[in-house]
């Protein structure tokens, strides 16, 4: 059944596929124009790839991810994860997702929230505690694991988000601005985590505004602007094609004109 899903070359298979996706937001008030957040994008991410999803504010990155997770319904087009339409919850068993603005149940502590999510993933009881300790150590929240989340700083909450995204040892990670709100060490850490996951053969699809970091960890990037995917390709290819670094490529693609010369 999944045969058509394999592209045939070099054993690679598509893990995330977006087909002609269009998302419109209709305003409640009459007479308001329809807001097209995503305008017909096509995208495929292969197993084992680290894909950087770039674009200026309001480009439609978060909206695309929300469709991938089934939070927002596409106006037309479709998305599939592991070959399963994203509207089916089973598509999410092997996924770790970090939402853009991370909020968790404030009255729970980090370990309680992870225990809750572990239960939902049906992680065997004997493994739960060691798994929780492992991810909490990874995001360096081990020493505050019993404190309620409402007492955490913004960066610490972001780390909780990362921990919950990793609790089920996902094959595909979808991270919406994983480094936002983190200190330089925290960012470095996230970069290391992404790199390690890649070495383990996991697939990472993440959005970011930190082009330096994208350049170091990504295999491929896609650049969105005003709801359209303007450019995509391997980082090295893009650099060669445009004869400049990723930041310049980005600015060129989104059509930014420098003020001075």
């Amino acid at each position: 059944m999944l045969d058509h899903w394999h592209d045939g070359y070099s054993g690679m298979s598509t893990i995330l596929k977006i087909d002609n996706l269009r998302v419109e937001y209709r305003r409640r008030e009459l007479g308001q124009p329809i807001n097209v957040a995503v305008n017909g994008i096509n995208l495929a991410v292969e197993t084992g790839e680290v894909f950087g999803f770039l674009g200026p504010n309001g480009a439609g990155k978060t909206t695309t991810m929300n469709v991938l997770l089934g939070f927002v319904n596409p106006t037309s087009g479709s998305c599939a994860l592991f070959g399963v339409d994203t509207r089916q919850p089973i598509a999410r068993q092997r996924i770790g997702f970090l939402p853009e603005l991370t909020y968790y149940y404030k009255f729970l502590s980090a370990e309680e929230i992870l225990r809750f999510y572990a239960k939902i993933f049906r992680i065997p009881a004997g493994e739960v505690e060691s798994r929780i300790s492992e991810v909490l150590k990874l995001v360096e929240l081990d020493n505050v694991r019993k404190r309620p989340i409402k007492s955490y700083s913004k960066g610490m909450q972001q780390r909780v988000g990362l921990a919950q995204a990793l609790i089920n040892k996902p094959d595909l990670l979808i991270l919406d601005e994983p480094t936002s709100g983190l200190d330089p060490v925290g960012r470095m850490k996230v970069r290391e985590i992404i790199q390690r996951l890649k070495e383990e053969g996991k697939t990472v699809f993440f959005s970011s505004h930190e082009l330096g970091e994208v350049e170091t960890v990504c295999d491929r990037v896609g650049i969105m602007c005003a709801g359209q995917l303007k450019e995509q390709g391997a980082v090295a290819d893009l650099r060669q094609r445009y004869q400049c670094d990723l930041e310049r490529v980005f600015l060129k693609v989104i059509g930014y004109q420098p003020a001075h010369g």
């Binding site: 996924i95 909020y103 968790y104 999510y117």
Partner: peptide, 14 residues
């Protein structure tokens, strides 16, 4: 409102 529904529904929960 608190957006806690996002991480929850990103799990295999219907």
């Amino acid at each position: 409102e608190n957006r806690t529904i996002f991480p929850l529904l990103a799990k295999p929960v219907t």
